[in-house]
């Protein structure tokens, strides 16, 4: 059986590399530098508490933050107070959440 191992992405994100966060903020859809690509791969591969996603409230217009629980069949966890009207803002919000989860550090507020 061929499986995708959730633990396979093991790149260690350097919390001092704020410049990579700044690069993502400026161009969330890329193209990205090699180092930022590694950061994003680590962030996108898996998350211990479940994967952050968006739920389309209105297709192409409004999206709500949500999280897919680690267990199949368990309802999606939604965050009704966190609604976006811009996908780039949503990407940035989740990037910050993941940065904190993976490095233990908050990104500085003035980065935005």
């Amino acid at each position: 059986m061929l499986v995708n191992d959730p633990q396979a992405a093991h790149y260690k994100i350097d919390p001092s590399r704020i410049n990579l966060a700044r690069e993502f903020r400026a161009a969330p859809k890329g193209p990205h530098s090699d180092e930022l690509q590694r950061v994003l791969h680590r962030m996108r591969w898996s998350a211990p508490g479940g994967r952050y996603v968006l739920v389309a409230l209105e297709p192409g217009r409004r999206w709500m933050l949500a999280r897919i629980p680690p267990t199949r069949g368990t309802p999606i966890e939604t965050f009704p107070n966190r609604v976006f009207t811009d996908l780039a803002e949503a990407e940035w919000h989740v990037f910050r959440l993941r940065w904190r989860e993976l490095t233990g550090d908050d990104l500085p507020d003035d980065l935005a």
């Binding site: 859809k29 994967r51 739920v55 199949r72 069949g73 309802p75 999606i76 996908l87």
Partner: peptide
């Protein structure tokens, strides 16, 4: 290559396997 956008149907399917 980016945040996954779920539809209402995806949300339903998650809980209705």
């Amino acid at each position: 290559e980016g945040l996954i956008v779920l539809s209402r149907d995806d949300v339903y399917l998650q809980a209705h396997r």
